[in-house]
Design a protein around this nucleic acid. Sequence first.
DNA 1: GCAAAAGTGTTCATAATACACCCATGT
DNA 2: ACATGGGTGTATTATGAACACTTTTGC
Lengths: 225, 225
Amino acid sequence: MYQHEGILITVDCIVFGYEDDLLKILLFKRWIEPSKDQLSLLGGWVNKNESVDDASRRVLQTITGLENIYMEMVDVFSEVHRDPGGRVISIAYYALMPITEENKKVVESHSAEWYPVHEMPELIFDHNQMLEQALSKLRSNATTSLIGKQLLPKRFTLLQLRKLYNAIFQVEFDPGNFRKKVLSLKVLEQLDIKDTSESKKGAYFYRFKEDGSNDNNNQIFKVDY
Amino acid sequence: MYQHEGILITVDCIVFGYEDDLLKILLFKRWIEPSKDQLSLLGGWVNKNESVDDASRRVLQTITGLENIYMEMVDVFSEVHRDPGGRVISIAYYALMPITEENKKVVESHSAEWYPVHEMPELIFDHNQMLEQALSKLRSNATTSLIGKQLLPKRFTLLQLRKLYNAIFQVEFDPGNFRKKVLSLKVLEQLDIKDTSESKKGAYFYRFKEDGSNDNNNQIFKVDY
DNA sequence: GCAAAAGTGTTCATAATACACCCATGT
DNA sequence: ACATGGGTGTATTATGAACACTTTTGC
């Protein structure tokens, strides 16, 4: 056996969701050794007949029941002793998905649960570090493109979008300036319907434009985090 | 044998250097099958007793003779059939190093050569794609932090630094504005020596401050590329 | 004196920030 | 009538882009 044989590959997914004005992630109680009953990220093996992206997509779909989940690679974790069970390299992904009644049921049936990111418990192995880096990458992405399409309902108000950004960065964006900045990007379109649940006056619903590419090599938000 | 066993891991390094006002990368003529005699990036196996970072460092050191080479992960390449020789996942890194007379000899003794990035030949497998992404990442990094420490001599003039940036982005930066922006970052210190090789008046040498962390979550250069 | 790079200054346009302030309406 | 979020306007400041202009010195 050569030196370079016998390494196993996994994916671990930091799944972000948004609920009750909080940014949350999906955690599992491990049901196999090692570290049974401790909390971990969603993960799985990379098989020989699939790319790492495909493996991540497969794992996500199995647990959430959703196809076409938005995901992005975060980093590779490869310290020799990171997994006490063997020589395992893990590719970390972050994923974004809405938290709905339906997928909550699917998720719970796999004994997974949503936890707020700001009060994160201890996770196994290097999973806390994975989460840190995923959050950092999410924030970085949220400054150069307008995120929310995958975390909010199809129709949403600017208040909802702003609260999402507040939750992501743990700061309070100025309502007026946030509105102007977001609308100046021209990636949202206003609908004719108003949401009266949050205010008496009612706020227009918006949605992401269908075509809209929403990338930018400049920054749209300047936030210290 | 399980589905998830038998995958091999390599690193591939996109090594950037700077010479004759050109951004160059290090390429190899392959001396083993498959694809003998074709050009490829510097690469090697990841062994069971080392992290991926360590493997990349080892491979870089072997070929260039240098320790402590600056490097950064670019992406993971894992399409099932990317390598006709087997199921191989590759982690791509970019690295920065000065091109000096000494290391040119070491490099040539391994039948490697420096090629300008703007006239890149066809490379094996997905190596052209790796290069594209590495260049893109290098550019992105060069907008949020001042690079050059690893590509230029210890002492350099602002002209040299500007020409490096011109080479990286393939644009002409305005001399006056470039100077003001760079100096406002306060990561360089002026030396008392002047370089008279490029002008009659002579330009002060600068060097990167020792302590200077040079990171920034904002942008320092706005460039369309 | 002139060319060529070094270095400084000025102007204009744009964008971020911190607000003030009016609007609409359910209670 | 008033509190609450919705939405607009404005003054101030900071930043970037273009470019004029002055300095130095080898030829």
